[in-house]
Design a protein around this nucleic acid. Structure first.
Lengths: 207, 207
DNA sequence: CCATGTGAATACATTCACAGCA
DNA sequence: TGCTGTGAATGTATTCACATGG
């Protein structure tokens, strides 16, 4: 039974996008039904965990049959609020910013870059993918005019905190941070940190 | 007391790189001593957790004083085995591969790209940063000759599993995977998966 | 029968709180 | 005194195992 009064552990929320990704893949292979068992094998979580995770949000399956892929996919999109597109700004027009601006995997999964910013005068005005790089001075105006809630930080570590402060000041509540430094933000703001080297280091421990 | 016979939880290993990053930053600011409290504030973990995590590996602090930054940094580098450089290959010379090839944050943290590969004939032979893009046919030879244990996968989702198989076949035991798909590998091989969109989706749940 | 959904049991992770030492 | 290192207590997460219903 759906019970939105329950608090859902953050660790569960973190797995939902992976379930969604797997479902979209199955769906693209023409599959119509799957099971917690099959998802378990594809994802490496136990089938019990998958069932329990989903049960926080409702009853999506049919006993004896499994899950109707399209329906579960749609449900997860709504739970994660990615059934409509989120406008994002990208701050940082270096190599990484360039790769992100050209990445074509955002829209199908609920996100769209609407503007790109950089502090470096030599970058400003340059075309990057479909956007013209704007100066930082225009950031706040863009955030407010377009009511942007999501941003990507792709600047050097030394500039990241100042950029984060400006974004938060402009109303952004979700930050995807590529700078290798911890950001300090108000509690209402979410930060997801990507640090490939930290990932590498946690693997070499085992080698 | 150091007790390497204890099994250290993977979640603890995952935090060590963050401690290391913070220590390196403090060190670069000229600081010589820190405390679990200070690290707690910088990183957002509790001070008790930081002390307990470190205690899996030894006694690094001085009661009443705290931790000597340089010593703890050196110790963590050794625990994570990043006191020497790991040779890596990069597979995928698209926009993302280009950004990774030009990223200057690897060497200071224990990693070095030694070769770049791509399947696309139009990319092969092209210069990318200091490397000339090599064809996939040369991958296995390079892995064996240079005894490479670490690789970055920056290819489209559809090609990722085949690339992973080749890398594992060539002796790679740690994969940094940027393709938005789950990889299936033998148990001895570690995979760290980077999916920015999954990160974004787990934040929009809360908005 | 088969696979879900879920309480109960287990396993794991974090925090508490304080003895002990610089 | 101040801060570490750590058992004990608490809090979370995962797995078990089975009643339930298509």
């Amino acid at each position: 039974m759906s019970n939105s009064s329950h608090h859902v552990p953050a660790i569960v929320i973190g797995r939902l996008p992976l379930y969604l990704r797997a479902l979209t893949q199955l769906s693209s292979e023409g599959r119509r039904v799957t099971s917690s068992q099959e998802l378990s094998e594809k994802l490496g979580f136990s089938s019990a965990q998958i069932r329990k995770d989903l049960s926080y949000f409702g009853e999506f399956g049919k006993q004896g049959t499994g899950y109707e892929i399209e329906y579960l996919e749609k449900s997860l999109r709504e739970i994660l609020q990615v059934h409509h597109l989120w406008d994002m700004v990208l701050v940082g027009a270096g190599d990484l910013g360039h790769a992100l601006a050209n990445y074509d995997g955002f829209e199908s999964r609920g996100f769209r870059i609407v503007a790109v910013f950089d502090a470096n005068p030599s970058k400003i005005g340059k075309q990057m993918a479909e956007w013209q790089v704007q100066p930082m001075e225009e950031l706040d105006k863009t955030l407010r005019e377009r009511n942007v809630n999501v941003a990507i930080i792709a600047v050097p570590a030394g500039a990241a905190q100042a950029v984060a402060d400006e974004l938060v000041e402009g109303g952004v509540r979700a930050l995807l941070n590529y700078a290798p430094t911890t950001l300090s933000v108000p509690p209402k703001v979410k930060v997801y940190h990507i640090d490939p080297v930290a990932g590498l280091q946690s693997m070499t421990y085992y080698l």
